[in-house]
Design a binder for these strands. Structure first.
Lengths: 346, 346
DNA sequence: TATTAGCACTTAGCAATTGAGAGTGCTAAC
DNA sequence: GTTAGCACTCTCAATTGCTAAGTGCTAATA
């Protein structure tokens, strides 16, 4: 499969390029016309037949041109990532205009990420997505407890990354604000600087110990802390649905329905982005590489953002498999870098 | 216009009912068949022609049946609200099943509202929406300041309604956490118990005074407070896009695009819901009564939720103008009441 | 031996035609 | 005031024929 002659490769790329720019199946004639190899349509035809046999192309019907498969896109993207993108000649002014807006929000990462999705979708004409980091990856800076009513307490978790998560937890009415302050002090001394993952682990241990030693206050502290952490508090932002519905890829009602189902299932998208954020740099998931059926006609380009080495979120683009990958990668890469730079510079 | 004979009214309602249940233009034959008045199609035809002249009905084309106008829906809805809904025979079990889920979230209003949108969309098969109250309507319980870095401070605002809003604000690096604590104490003594609106007003006054008296700390306090309040921190939740795309009203690509534009403009929806939340009970906005073009084919049914007399959010349904208003009103009313009850019972 | 020209074949997409079905408005009779 | 009857209008779906695009195969060519 990897034994593609240089010529076959060039023709494959030509087909992909053409299809990305113009959503019609690509015929042998078009290839010879638009990209001047010194070859006749007949020869190209033979090569394309070979490429089809190898699984890189398919034809929608007998007498249509051919269309790249997800395998072809993967091949193409991998080569792109290796050699960098040659034709990333996107207007720099547009970038700068949009980024200027983001710059004003640099203090508030959550807002920054949510606004970044707009820039991403405007730049790419696909869906812009962004996500705050998995709580398990973030580290606790401080915890604050405020008695809300008889039996409710607000737990506010400040992370070192700049995220603020809060949750309201039910408590024993006997606990006073003073008790809560002491509990908070205890929790801070115990857990600040720890990742949420570590805290979760620590809780399990403490709770075992607690059974024997049995300090009333500590027991309360643990219970509150556990409840506050029990939910995955990941935040996901998406925008650009109108943009994407203007694409010729989403004119079919069935496809649109699928798209809407994919977007409604935020949990799934979070899961995918989480996985992608574990690696360095821009990641690409193409169509059928996705597990869920609703995503099998969608591609995802995403990159983590970092403050120094600490993950502070993921930004990305969701679009049809017939995506301008070079452009998408370029946009995502730049946006991720820009955000990283924004939050890193003191 | 209000001088509709009892018979005309009945026929108008019959047309509306039929069209709501079955998305085809209603002809005179159908009316006589499905709803047994003692009348022949010809007579009904005459009456329907009159109703069309009065602006209650239109025909999509010469030889189709007739379709209610927004005016007709308004007429119908007004009569519904007056007399209560007669045929609200929705399975109570479904309600209870969904509501049981919500009950677990009663401590966290924000989460409660966001989950309520799922119930609303599952019950109605339209879009479920929910919104936290306008900050201006909420009252400050407490303000907390935490120094985040050299030049950033996290401002956490706890409202009496149970909402926690936070914002990160840039500050002079010279200000220490100790200073911040004093500032927070000052702000709490000054503003806790006040509505955000009052605080905003108070700030203006204080800042005038400050110019002459010039206490350094107070001046800082005011600036931080102002910046924290400068954004409208309204939260909007929407779900059910896949549900609504299964309706025959949204099979047309143009309509779907319009819908997606309407949803992308959250600001506008917030504005509409804000206005609706000012009145008591369930409100209905029908199609062309909306200002924005993207909303002119959508109807909105919404109701505020209250804890005793204090507004804690709005829940509602967005759907096509051809909406089952009786059912929608019933669902929204019950959900609003349920949530109100949940958060009110201590 | 690799490439190419030529040709028969397949298929989607478009436009025009047709007939059925549904619903209307109007008129005259009840 | 109500109704039956009828001519008229319009949509919708099916059918047909045609064109354009593209293919695979074979035989000729460099």
């Amino acid at each position: 499969m990897q034994i593609l002659s240089e010529r076959s490769k060039k023709i494959l790329y030509a087909v992909i390029q053409s299809y990305i720019n113009y959503p019609d199946p690509v015929g042998s004639r078009v290839v010879t016309k638009r990209y001047s190899f010194g070859l006749s349509p007949a020869t190209v035809r033979n090569i394309m037949a070979d490429l089809e046999e190898m699984g890189f192309l398919t034809q929608p019907h007998t007498s249509a041109g051919r269309v790249p498969t997800d395998l072809a896109y993967r091949f193409y993207v991998d080569s792109l990532v290796k050699q960098g993108d040659p034709n990333a000649n996107i207007e720099v002014e547009i970038f700068q205009g949009l980024y200027k807006r983001l710059e004003m929000l640099k203090n508030d990462i959550e807002l920054l990420l949510s606004e970044a999705t707009r820039s991403l979708s405007l730049l790419s004409h696909y869906l812009g997505v962004a996500m705050s980091p998995t709580p398990d990856m973030t580290t606790l800076k401080k915890i604050t407890l405020l008695k809300y009513s008889e039996d409710k307490v607000a737990v506010v978790l400040f992370t070192d990354e700049g995220f603020i998560k809060n949750k309201i937890v039910a408590i024993d009415p006997n606990i006073s604000q003073k008790d809560l302050n002491r509990i908070a002090t205890y929790l801070n001394s115990e857990f600040s600087g720890c990742s949420f993952h570590e805290i979760r682990m620590g809780l399990v241990q403490e709770m075992k110990r607690e059974k024997t030693e049995c300090d009333f206050l500590i027991s309360r502290a643990m219970r509150i802390c556990k409840e506050a952490l029990c939910f995955p508090l990941n935040e996901l932002f998406v925008s650009g649905l109108p943009e994407v519905l203007d694409l010729p890829d989403f004119t079919d009602l069935k496809t649109i329905r699928q798209l809407s189902k994919a977007l409604e299932d935020k949990h799934n998208i979070i899961k995918i982005l989480d996985k992608m954020s574990e690696s360095e740099g821009v990641q690409v998931v193409i169509g059928s590489e996705n597990e869920r059926d609703e995503m099998k006609k969608l591609s995802l380009v995403a990159s983590p953002c970092k403050e120094n080495d600490r993950p502070i979120g993921v930004v990305g683009i969701i679009g049809p498999t017939r995506m301008n990958y070079a452009k998408a990668i370029y946009i995502v890469e730049n946006t991720a870098k820009f955000i990283s730079r924004l939050v890193t510079e003191k």
